[in-house]
Amino acid sequence: MELPELSPVQNINVDASIGFGKVPEHLPEVRGSGVLFEAAVNDFLFKFKGIGRYRVQNGRRIIIQPEGEALPAEIRLVLLGSGIGALLHQRGMMAIHGSAITDGKQTAIVSGQSGVGKSTLAAGLHELGYSVIADDISVIGLNGKQQFIVEHGIPHLKLWKDVLAHLNQADDLAKVRPQLDKYRKPIPVLEEEAPRLSKIVILNPSNSTDFSYSEILGREKFHLLRTNTYRLQFIDKMNQTEAHFRNLSQLVNSIQMFHANRPHDPKNILEFSKSISEIIFNT
């Protein structure tokens, strides 16, 4: 299967395989489920009628059984979202729902609920010259100095047509699905390891026309890290709650966190991005 969203790498050990095969209707044992998924310890099933069934096992293997007239782009969309999300959690890895950005000295994640404008902000910061390390899923790792970093993610931003228009960018990009006016905008792959993760900004919707922010302190930091975990709903059902708690407890003490209230429908995305960059990169 071609995965044009990912960049080729050479000379590394393969530690997860993705391929086509038969996937059952249900898992033999189910610990918990959602509308579109079933989960057990080291076994996960995602099924979307018309696209396909995905089985993720032991943090090492994803098997896909496409369905009907599913388009390759749609098959990849689920794979690179919930499929990879399940794989990461099976490995006990920490993934925050948000985009990671760096100025070359430090890294920040912009997180928050779906639809709040995380990718839009990442696109704005990218326009201002910052590098985007990851969009939508920010996987946390450790560097050689045992500092938290964000692993390189899929090198593209998923942007709606109105955002592309605001940024005066062409909309001749590939759509994430033919039915949606949402496009994949490729971004340059960062060559070097990303610098230390130092800040997480929780973007909140607001009906104000002004931008405002405040530092998050105490227990609220842990709570917000938890609620903004990528596919949090998988964790308990996979019996990974303890590992997740441990991961978050370590991360919470080494970062600063902020609430940022997004002005509603900012007419000028770049202006808003500049305001955010002042908090996260002290510019």
Binding site: V35, L36, G81, S82, S114, L180
Partner: peptide, 30 residues
């Protein structure tokens, strides 16, 4: 949207409005 996403296990932003409505009865049941 956050509640819907959490019961689905995927981003509803990647679904059409019609697909979301097809799934919402199950979301509400859960």
């Amino acid at each position: 949207r956050s509640i819907i996403d959490s019961y689905l296990g995927m981003h509803s932003s990647e679904l059409t409005a019609e697909e979301i409505d097809k799934l919402r009865p199950q979301v509400f049941k859960r």
